[in-house]
Amino acid sequence: MSDLASAALASAAMIPIDVQRGFDFPPWGARNNPAMEANGRRLLAAWRETGRPLIHVRHDSVLPDSTLHPSHPGNDFREGFEPLPDEPLVTKSVNAAFIGTDLDLRLRRLGVDTVVLFGISTDMCVSTTARVAANLGYRVLVVGDACFCFDLVDAEGRRIDADTVSRAHLATLHAEFAEVVDTQALLSRLRAD
């Protein structure tokens, strides 16, 4: 982990994004990174021990047929990712967790200047949230091995496997918007503080 990321953790907040059951239902399809859940649970446990701010994000789709609609069982958090009673929850209906929510206001009131993001999916809500966070002036860390995404079909009908989608999006984030780190590096840094 770089010096910038290490120095930034003193005023950082962790934001798990859309770690919901709905992504296990059709039509989402084949995903990558089967270690996402284990890595995410390790991050949450370690972060909670530090007492730093933690704000959960849940996608509440406005589309009635969506697996993330509040009436669907898929709207629930995955096991081990439920907010604790004293942990705030921000709900959104678009990709970026900052759009149509009070997330920015909450972070500013907490004195946060760095956000640590992970969740589902790498290329959609995690990436979009990271980009907006960077544009708002936050330092952004994306824990790449605590995210996953799905196979996609391009405009010409060709399938792009989820690993390729993930690598491309993490590379784009790393080039311009965020520092991409792995779970172990972040845990090591937390233990060193």
Results as ranks from 00 to 15, higher is better:
S188A: 15
A178R: 02
A45Y: 02
D193S: 15
R21G: 11
V181E: 15
G100A: 08
N95T: 10
G22K: 00
V132E: 12
D18K: 10
L186T: 03
R189D: 08
D182W: 00
L187N: 10
F98D: 00
L186S: 07
W47D: 13
A133L: 00
I99H: 15
D86E: 14
T91Q: 12
R31Q: 12
R52F: 01
R21C: 11
P27L: 08
F81Q: 09
I17N: 13
C147F: 06
G100E: 07
S166E: 14
H72Y: 03
G157P: 08
G119I: 12
T101Q: 07
H169C: 07
V57D: 10
M1S: 15
F148H: 13
P85F: 00
H174S: 15
V90N: 15
K92L: 05
R52Q: 09
H59C: 05
L103K: 03
T122Q: 07
A45T: 14
A13N: 10
V140G: 12
R108A: 11
V165E: 12
G119P: 12
L54G: 04
H69R: 01
D123I: 02
D3C: 06
L43S: 04
D161A: 09
G74C: 06
L107F: 05
F118P: 09
N39R: 02
L43I: 02
F118E: 09
R159V: 14
N32Q: 02
P83Q: 03
S66M: 03
